[in-house]
Simulated scan of single mutants.
Amino acid sequence: MSQVLMAKSEAAVPSDVSTVVQYALAEDIGDGDRNAALVATNTSARARVIARENAILAGAPWFDAVFAALNPAVTVRWSCADGQRLRADATVVELEGPVHALLSGERTALNFLQLLSGVASATHEYVERVKGTDTAIIDTRKTLPGLRSAQKYAVLCGGGVNHRFGLFDAILIKENHIMAAGSIDAAVARAREQSPALFLQVEVENLTELEQALEAGVDGVLLDNLATHVLARAVNMADAHRRRFRRDIVIEASGDISLTNVREIADTGVDRISIGGLTKHVRATDFSMRMYTE
C-alpha cells in the first residue's frame, strides 16, 4: 500500500474506490503504457501537484488508490485534506517513487482530482449563498455513470448533503409515476404497502398537488419549478399540516436553481434545495503535476 501521510476528510470514503480506479486505469493504460516505456525502469522521481485556481479539494482517496494500484512503493504526502480550501498556485500533494508509476498514473489521478474538486467547489458556492438560513444544499441522481458514490462524496466535501443514493433507498414519486398509478393517493398507498420503512416523497408542480400529497401522509414534498411567492405559500401550507398532525414533513425545492436565485429560494423557509447541476454541470478544477527525476 502506498504511504499516505495526512488524514482525509470526515466524509465517509465510498467502498468502491478501488473498483472505480482499476476501471479507470484499464481504460487509460490498456495493455501497456507506451509513453512510460521511453524511460528506464530503474528511474525514481519526485512530483508535486499544484492547484491553478482557488477551489475546495476533493478526490484524495481516488488519487491515492491510483498510485497504490500501480506501485506500492509510491509515497504520497498531502499538504491539505479533502474539504479544505485551496489557493491558486498552492502545492496540494507531493509524490515520490518509481517514475513509471508516476507517469502512468498522472492523468487518471488528476482526472479524479479535477472532477471531484470541481463538484466540491460548486457545492461550496451554493452553501455559502444560503449561509445563515436553515436550508441544506443537496445533490440528486444526475451523476456521471459509474461515479455516483465519488460525486456524492465530493458534495459532502463541499458542505452539501446527499439525497437518496439510488432507486432502492428512498422513494420519490414523480409525474410519470403518478400518471402510471392513476393519482397521488394511489401511488402513495402502493408505496406504503410495498416499502413501509422507506422515506416517501412526492414531487408536486402546484398547490393543488401539494395539498393532495400532504393529505396522503407523505414524509416529504419536492416543490418543482415553483415561483418564489408560490414556494412561500407552499411552505406555509406544509407548516400548517405539520402543526395539525404533529408530524414532520421535509420541504424541498428544485428546478431552475442558480447562484442568482438560490438565496431567495432558501429565504422562503424550505428545508433543502436539490441541484442536479452540482454533479452534471461539472467545471473541472485546474491542477497540474510537475515531475523531477533524481
Rank of each mutant, 00 (worst) to 15 (best):
M1I: 08
L5Y: 08
A7T: 13
V20W: 00
V21G: 08
E27S: 11
R34T: 15
N35V: 05
V39T: 15
T41Q: 15
R46H: 15
R46G: 15
A47Q: 04
R48H: 11
V49S: 01
V49Y: 04
A51D: 07
A55G: 08
G59A: 09
G59I: 01
A60C: 11
W62R: 02
V74L: 13
V74T: 06
W78E: 06
G83F: 12
L102G: 00
L102Q: 11
R107N: 12
F112N: 00
G118Y: 00
Y126N: 02
V127N: 03
K131R: 13
T133A: 11
D134T: 13
I137V: 04
I137S: 04
I138C: 10
D139I: 01
T140Y: 00
R141C: 03
R141G: 02
K142N: 05
P145Q: 09
S149Q: 09
Q151I: 10
A154P: 00
V155E: 00
V155S: 00
L156D: 03
G159F: 06
N162A: 14
H163A: 12
R164H: 15
L167R: 04
A170S: 14
A170G: 12
I173G: 04
K174S: 10
M179S: 12
A180E: 14
E193C: 09
Q194M: 09
A197E: 13
F199H: 13
V202C: 13
E203R: 04
E205Y: 13
N206P: 03
G217E: 07
D219G: 05
D224I: 01
V230T: 11
M237V: 07
R243V: 03
R244H: 13
R247A: 13
D248V: 02
G255H: 07
I257T: 08
S258D: 11
L259A: 14
N261W: 11
N261P: 03
I265C: 09
G269I: 10
D271K: 08
I273A: 00
L278H: 07
L278Y: 03
K280E: 14
H281P: 00
H281W: 09
A284M: 04
F287T: 00
S288E: 06
T293N: 09
E294G: 13
